[in-house]
Each structure stands twice: as structure tokens, then as C-alpha cells.
Nucleic acid binder design. Sequence first.
DNA 1: GTTTTTTCAACTGTTGACAATACGGCGGCG
DNA 2: CGCCGCCGTATTGTCAACAGTTGAAAAAAC
Lengths: 228, 228
Amino acid sequence: MEPGNISGRTLADRAFEWLEEAIIKGDYPPEFRLDEGALAKSFGISRGPVREAIRRLEGKKLVERVPHIGARVTSLTDSDLVELFFVREALEGMACRLATERMSDEDLQALSALLEGHASSGALKAGESYYQRPGDFDFHFRIIQGSRNPKLIAMLCDDLYHLLRIYRYRSSSRRGRASQALKEHRSIVKAMLARKPDLAEHEMRAHLQHARLAIQPPPKKNDPSVDD
Amino acid sequence: MEPGNISGRTLADRAFEWLEEAIIKGDYPPEFRLDEGALAKSFGISRGPVREAIRRLEGKKLVERVPHIGARVTSLTDSDLVELFFVREALEGMACRLATERMSDEDLQALSALLEGHASSGALKAGESYYQRPGDFDFHFRIIQGSRNPKLIAMLCDDLYHLLRIYRYRSSSRRGRASQALKEHRSIVKAMLARKPDLAEHEMRAHLQHARLAIQPPPKKNDPSVDD
DNA sequence: GTTTTTTCAACTGTTGACAATACGGCGGCG
DNA sequence: CGCCGCCGTATTGTCAACAGTTGAAAAAAC
């Protein structure tokens, strides 16, 4: 009824959305302490709804809580990031396969146009933009949506991408990765236009493998990260 | 310090674990209404911690909440289940690939032994057990653990499997699927023993595709379940 | 008899107060 | 000089009471 009312109807929901956005935007960096009292005061509400919002974020793995200590914004180690890229490779490969089968010719043409538009707009002139940027994000986002699988879309867009954005790119992306990424994107679109799901999935996974290797420390003799 | 202290240290954490287990076990079926007051009284605590537990379950997508109405246990439609099987195929395929590269020879031998033990114990005599049963679960569980990728393990074991268990198998699994599943499991182990990651992933994905098709209504002229 | 309105009980949303716990500083003591 | 325990403060955990909303039964109108 009240359209412009606001985002969430309850205070707890609004606090959740506020916090989630602040975390994703980077206003609250990793390890940032979420002080219930301070947050409540800054929102002009009581601690109850704030606590509920934090519990919801905890379920979403955006914050980590320790009883009697407090909640902090989730922090991703380098190996966490690499692990998540394996997950992303699996999920987005599947999304690309499904998109290849399910996207309309029009949508595929639009995707291709988007790609070439970015390519020619000189956005990657410095070899810095595009990759890990809105252009790159749009491209992947459209393909994911094209999978028409709501669960898959939610996992990638609502969960995984948010998690990845928490990571503040510590290692500068490799030089030349931007133009390389563009080439790989073209290969993906080509396979999609040819309606070859197997190939499209393979190209997407190769693309994400390269992205992972660009951030992954070179394989040392013995990997200290494995212990269970 | 005190390991055997108890499950969760705070009431909210214990309520969360209690509710999560009840949902996963099926004590609280899909669509079951979570009455804060009633739950609080049955736990012997106040509504505050119960609300926090529910918010955490909401973040985990185990319950769905509507403001001012209440929370209900998540209900999966048939198409939801099919969508989740695509996700499972992607993730568990990747897990199987990584497990093939990372599991020790001993662990692989143990996996093979587990499989043959189940096969010979007459557990699948009636063609009813094994598939969608502890034996099947153990098999997949071990492979997932073998991936040594904590994020992947958490997504599969802590999130996806719990979601899948919510679904109360409405369509009885096809006759003969049990022995078929066993054959497929053998193919997977064979590929893993041969240390062929590509093949292992392929076999696992084929296995899960078959499982999906067994639950997926055969492609009819017009499917009444699809409406978006 | 059917439809509309009103009332009401049950539940959720929110708050402020109180209890319990962790952390840091202070002083005592070996 | 350094270690240990005490204590105060700040923050989290829990509770009970209050306010607002919903949905349905009961009452009124047609």
C-alpha cells in the first residue's frame, strides 16, 4: 500500500539491509567490530532488532560471532579466496551451461553487444579496468541470470559474490590479465552463440581457473594450508 | 577449553541447534509454523533467544519469515528440488575432482571397501535400501570430505544436504535405481583409483544427473509445475 | 441466508532493565 | 622486576512488559 515506505517493514529487517550493504560496500571492512549498542544508537533503535540482524548475517556467513565477545565482519584469508574460486568455477560453469541452453537469441546478441561495447570503449586501455570491474561483473551477472535456475542464481549473486566482494584485493591483479579476460569472455560468448553447452561450460571454467591462478600464490613444494 | 560443556554456550545458540536438528530430522515438517512463544516455553527460556535462533535459520534459508505473520520451515517444491540437484551436480562434481587429486591411497581403498561392503551385505537386496540411505550418504560424504576444500565441504554438508533432507520424498524412487546407483558408484571409485580427475568428475555428474532424472517428472507437453 | 462490519484474542515487534561475562588496569607479593 | 589475583567498566546475554498487527470469530446489516 505504502510504496515509498521503505525497504524492510520491520526495524530488524531494515537494520539487516543496512548492515549488509555497509559490509558489501566496504564501509565496514573485514574484522570490523559490530558493537550492538553503538549500532543501535546510530540507527535510533534498541539493541533487539540489531541483534536479530546480526544473527541473520551470521547465518549468511557475512559476520562471525563469538559468544560473549561480539560479532565481526567475516575476513577471508588468501586460501579462503582460492577455495571460493573453486566453488565459483563449479557453479558458474553450470550456470554458463544452462544459459547456453536457455537464453534467447536476443539475449545472447545483447550479451555479445555488451562485450564488444566494453571492448571498444577503451575501458581497458590502461589494462587495468574491465577485469574485476563493473563491466566484468555485468557480463558474469547476465550469464548467471540466463541459467534460469533461481537457486543457482541466489547462491551465486546473493551469497558467493557478496562474500567475494568482502575480500579487499590485496594482490594486485596481474598485468595483462584484463585483455586476457576479454579474450576469454569472447570465447565464452562464441561457444554460447554456437549453442554448445559443453564447450561454453569448459570456457567459463577455464576463464575462472585463470582468474584463480592469477590470485593464487605459485604452487610451492609443500603446501602448509592443508590440515584436517 | 571444556569440550564437553554443551552444544552451544548461549541459550540462543542452543535453541538454534535444537531447531536446526528438529527441522533436519523432520520433527518439524515443511510449512511447520514456528511459534516463538510456544517454543520459548518448551525450551524453558524467553522469546528473545528463540527469535535470534529463528533469524539465524532464516539466514541459512531453513525457515521463511513473513513480517508480522511468523516463520515456517522452508518448503521445497518439486522444481526447487530439481534446481538444487543442478547445484549439487556442479558442486559435488568439483568435489569429486578434487578428491581424486587429493585423497590418499589409503582413504581411497577405504572408500572402495565401504562400497563393496555395502554391496555384499545384502543391504540392497530389496532394491530399496542403499540409494537415498545412510550407505549412499556415507559414500558421498567421504568424497566431499576428500576434496579438502573447507568452503566446498561447508556448502555441501552444512547447507545443501540439509536443504535436500527437508524434502520429504514424495515421488517414490524408481525401481532398480538402487542397483543402478551402485554401479555408478563403482564407476566413480574406479575413476578415482585410476587418478583421473576429469573422468571422476564426469562419472559423479552422470550419477547425479540420473538421480535428478529419476525424480524429475518426464518432460511432458506442458509442465504444470513451472510458473515464474 | 449472505455479506459486511466489528470485536477480540493471539501472536509478533520493540523496548528498557537486569544479569552474566570478558577485558584491562591496579595493587600486592614473591 | 615480574607474575598473580582482584576489581571496575564496558559489552553481551536474557528477560518481562508493552505496543502494534493480523486473522478470524461474532455481530450487525441487507
